[in-house]
């Protein structure tokens, strides 16, 4: 896991699988996921192997997650917002019925 060097002067709350965690305005969601104690990863749609943020610049698509109910969001390109929810994306994506 990663750790922050500083205590954020300002903080927002992001819900990771329902659990509230502290995030700092200006950082992206993938950074928050990488700070979680249990490593954050998703099973791929192809073989179900595990993936986690890798490139952090939007070119690898390994950091996909469900953000505020919308799947296939690149978390490394998504700035945090107060109250944002993030959930694991499981293999192939389900569309809302």
């Amino acid at each position: 896991m990663f750790r922050k060097l500083h205590e954020p002067a300002e903080a927002v709350t992001v819900y990771v699988e329902g659990k509230p965690v502290v995030a700092e305005p200006g950082e992206n969601l993938a950074a928050v996921l990488l700070r979680q104690e249990a490593i954050w990863s998703r099973p791929t749609p192809v073989k179900g192997s595990r993936r986690a943020p890798y490139c952090m610049i939007g070119v690898c698509f390994d950091c996909l997650a469900r953000v505020d109910g919308v799947a296939s969001v690149q978390t490394c390109m998504m700035p945090v917002r107060d109250g944002m929810t993030v959930e694991h994306q499981q293999r192939r994506r389900c569309l809302p019925s």
């Binding site: 060097l5 700092e24 950082e27 992206n28 490139c55 610049i57």
Partner: peptide, 16 residues
């Protein structure tokens, strides 16, 4: 991760 990714994390989130 890539080294570049780790550096982005340092720049944007202050994390190591």
């Amino acid at each position: 991760l890539t080294v570049g990714a780790a550096q982005v994390l340092l720049k944007t989130a202050g994390q190591i």
